[in-house]
Nucleic acid binder design. Structure first.
Length: 807
RNA sequence: GCCCGAGUGGCGGAAUGGCAGACGCGGAGGCCUCAAAAGCCUCUACUCGAAAGGGUGUGUGGGUUCGAGUCCCACCUCGGGCACCA
């Protein structure tokens, strides 16, 4: 029988055949009433930029391994895929080549779909969603309207981030720390515009608290905690001298240091800034405000530059309510208008920024926390007893804070207050290729939602794609001019579209119930599958997508669309490493892409998958180097060897017991390594096993075991070999379990050390007891030689692994 | 500046406090072949030695321990995140 199978390994033929079968037979389709225990495994759905790149291959290989492994373990695994198909590249292509973004996008989806199938990834294709599909848009818009109704979506005139390259506003999350656009790299400028926001700040506390229950990489959680930036403190009012009844409200995290306040600072954009300025200071203050307004955010945020040019005295004073002392009011660019109250009390003795400013402007410094002995620094921010603080003296920071806040509340001039760095999510974009915001602006009725029966609002096809800073929809009279759904009078449609992060904030919910025509999804479907048991994607989404999606699920629950029993979308998250080349991320824009298609045509998909699994820990970055090609060749070589062992083994095991025992050890090893994402060592384990089979000969059980444990890694090759050997699908086989009786070993090597150095190795029975192990060790000729007849000082015995003789 | 993470052969990387370098790549030698490709076998951390055998070795310096790549302290380098958030 074996002789008949002896044809060479032909990856292309095998891969094509099996991919077609998985698709036609719906092998990985799973229904919502599937009797198997449910498990939801999801890779972040891709932006369709054309054929898959190496990053995709890596991501979807990990996902596919889990899907196939868990399916073999008996789970009914939900493994959907879709496309994040709105976005700027399609629109930019339209501007350049005049191809409609839909056509452009659909073509790219076709290419990406083909390459996802080409790597052998298993999906329930019936559940595919596309952000730009009207059936999906309808529900994106419905969700928006529900949020609007609930007050979670609102319109506001605000200083916003404007990207001149993308011709649109951006969310704070899309502006990098250096003030540039994360997408185009252009320097982002500030503009005051009327924009749409989601009230994510309402969920700041819950978003922060719920992080604790997530099985996510710690660094992602840390990034989200930093981004939310919760800080506890107090707000209170300071009367402004000479401005009857006017007061200044400040936020501080250190109310305990209030007696040390020696001046106040307003942000230059603070509404009171000009009002309180004394006539003789007016000209200078106006000049300062104008200068700051012209400074780019980059310069303003940098701590560079002479401090004495970064602030100005207003001529006004406020009264410190703690001690009744007047303090001068300054403006300074280091105080932000958008955080807290836009005004601070300055306590230079306990805040280094205030210290620096006070020194530059010759303002007094009064310590109110006693620094430790020998302190020779400037501002002291640590703990210590309060001093120079009347009724707070002697208290530690924590107690003094509490007492100061109690006092403010008793006096009715202040209160406990929590502030967040997190801002509301700016979701409107002045672009065409996104989901239209479904409202109408009526001169009489204001913002009127489009009735749900009229959804989806679809953009017309005949628009001019010229970047103007306004959505191209604004120029399209047929789209723009409507009658008000409320009063029937003439009105204008909203022409802004939604940030594509809106689409990706709920797609994983639609996957649970993709054909639902009456709702975005049913609560039953969501309750069955959610939360996602394993989410897999890139670290670059640590804040943006992963924060927005968390917010969405909570908000969807609160507006009654999603069940309130599920508050977090992704139970476990894995962030895989990125592919780098020459030190930088491999990407289309950097022009350093290595196309996977080349490898599919040469070594085949299984070999490429195996490479990604083998090259290193999945969480680590991969450097694409001159050596990479050779490692891929090595993986292909290994698969050929597997093929030969299964089709034309050179010898049959002389000691089948020993080989079968090794097979059981392999099962135990690989099973454990799959659980803990140690795919590189799992591949190494199988390689070791094939080395053993080549040397010792095969048994049927050993070959079957090898194929079964490899089935999630190299699905095509193993499927083909299994069918030839047994008929049927390998991926429908039960995941093998190691027989504990076969895991016991009959002999093991015990290491004998003298003073911690290995001096001898002795084969022993694994069940050897301590005294016997010690006897054997001391009887060793090598040990005797080194002891020179002296008695050992001490003998550490750890049977059956090791004996250490100390002299 | 602050917070994470990581430093192991020529390279990618393995090692519940117990044989450092599994597995693979590359390299050297050999078998097969008229020759090559493919495949197979052996060796491959550094160092002394002809060999047997010895010494050294996981970024640096200390410490804990019978025993440290692994735990603790300090430092260096690289990568990532945050950075006037009061």
């Amino acid at each position: 029988m074996r002789g008949l199978m002896a044809d060479p390994y032909d990856p292309q033929a095998i891969e094509q055949r099996w991919q077609q079968r998985w698709l036609e037979e719906g092998t990985y389709e799973v229904d919502n009433d599937d009797p198997r225990p449910p498990l939801y495994v999801l890779c972040m759905y891709p932006y369709p930029s054309g054929p898959a790149h190496m990053g995709h291959v890596r991501n979807y290989t990990f996902g596919d391994l889990i899907v196939r492994h868990r399916t073999m373990q008996g789970y009914g695994v939900l493994s959907p895929i879709g496309f994040d198909s709105f976005g700027l590249p399609a629109e930019n292509a339209a501007i350049k080549t005049n191809v409609h973004p839909r056509q452009f996008t659909d073509e790219r989806i076709g290419e990406l779909t083909a390459s996802l199938r080409g790597i052998g990834a298993a999906y329930d294709w019936r559940r595919e969603v596309r952000s730009h599909d009207p059936h999906y848009m309808r529900w994106t818009q419905t969700i928006f309207l529900r949020f609007l109704e609930a007050g979670l979506a609102y319109r506001s005139n605000a200083p916003v981030n404007w990207c001149p390259g993308c011709h649109t506003v951006l969310a704070n999350e899309q502006v990098l720390a250096d003030g540039t656009c994360e997408r185009s790299g252009d320097v982002v400028t500030r503009r005051d515009l009327e924009q749409w926001f989601f009230k994510i700040t309402d969920y700041a506390d819950e978003l922060l608290a719920d992080l604790d229950q997530l099985d996510w990489p710690e660094r992602v959680k840390v990034m989200q905690r930093n981004w939310i930036g919760r800080s506890e403190g107090a707000e209170f009012d300071l009367p402004i001298e000479g401005h009857d009844g006017r007061s200044l409200r400040v936020f501080t995290t250190r109310p305990d240091t209030s007696f040390g306040m020696t001046y106040c600072v307003l942000a230059p954009e603070h509404p009171l800034a000009l009002e309180i300025t004394s006539p003789e200071r007016r000209a200078e203050v106006e000049r300062f405000i104008e200068a700051v307004g012209m400074t780019s955010d980059i310069d303003r945020l940098s701590s560079e530059g002479p401090l004495d040019k970064r602030g100005v005295f207003t001529g006004a004073s406020a009264v410190n309510p703690f001690n009744g002392q007047p303090v001068p009011i300054y403006l300074a660019d280091y105080v932000l208008g958008t955080y807290g109250t836009g005004a601070i009390m300055a306590v230079p003795a306990q805040d280094q920024r205030d210290w620096d400013f006070a020194t530059a402007y010759d303002l007094p410094i009064v310590r109110t926390v006693q620094p430790p002995g020998g302190w020779d620094g400037e501002a002291y921010t640590g703990d210590g007893p309060a001093i120079n603080s009347e009724w707070l003296d002697g208290l530690g920071v924590v107690e003094a804070k509490a007492k100061a806040i109690d006092w403010l509340e008793e006096q009715g001039i202040g209160k406990r207050k929590v502030n967040y760095r997190l801002r509301d999510w700016l979701l409107s974009r002045q672009r065409f290729w996104g989901c239209p915001i479904p409202v109408v602006h009526c001169p009489d009725d204001g913002v009127v939602p489009v009735p749900e029966s009229d959804l989806p609002v679809l953009a017309p096809d005949d628009v001019e794609f010229t970047p103007s800073g306004e959505s191209p929809l604004r120029q399209h009279q047929g789209f723009l001019q409507v009658t008000c759904p409320k009063c029937g009078g003439p009105a204008e449609r909203e022409t802004d579209t939604m940030d594509t992060f809106v689409d990706s904030s709920w797609y994983f919910l639609r996957f649970t119930d993709p054909a639902n025509e009456g709702a975005p999804f049913s609560k039953e479907a969501v309750e069955r599958w959610m939360p996602v048991d394993q989410y897999i994607g890139g670290i670059e989404h640590a804040i943006l997508h992963l924060m927005y999606a968390r917010f969405f699920l909570k908000a969807l629950g609160d507006v009654g669309l999603a069940p309130t029993s599920v508050r977090e979308p992704f139970r476990r998250l894995f962030t895989q490493g990125m592919i780098r080349m020459g030190g930088s991320k491999m990407s289309k824009s950097k022009g350093n892409l290595v196309a996977p298609s080349h490898y599919l045509e040469t070594v085949g998909a299984d070999a490429l998958r195996l490479f990604h699994l083998f090259v290193g820990p999945p969480a680590d970055d991969v450097d694409w180097t001159d050596q990479t090609e050779e490692i891929i060749e090595g993986c292909a070589r290994f698969l050929k060897r597997v093929w030969r062992l299964a089709t034309e083994p050179e010898k049959v095991a002389a000691d089948p017991q020993a080989v079968d025992r090794a097979a059981h050890r392999l099962i135990a090893r690989v099973s454990g390594e799959y659980e803990r994402w140690s795919y590189n060592t799992a591949v190494a384990g199988v390689m070791e096993f094939t080395n053993l089979l080549s040397k010792e000969g095969v048994t049927d059980f050993a070959v079957d075991t090898m194929l079964l444990v490899m089935a999630p890694m190299a699905p095509h090759l193993t499927a083909e070999l299994w069918e030839r050997r047994h008929g049927g699908h390998i991926h429908e086989q039960r995941w093998p379990e190691a027989d504990p009786a076969m895991l016991t070993i009959t002999s093991t090597t015990m290491v004998v050390q003298v003073n911690g150095k290995v001096r001898d190795r002795i084969d022993v029975d694994p069940a050897v007891d301590g005294p016997e192990a010690e006897r054997l060790a001391l009887a060793s000729a090598k040990v005797q030689e080194l002891l020179h007849g002296r008695p050992p000082q001490k003998v550490i015995v750890r049977p059956p692994k090791l004996v250490n003789v100390v002299v």
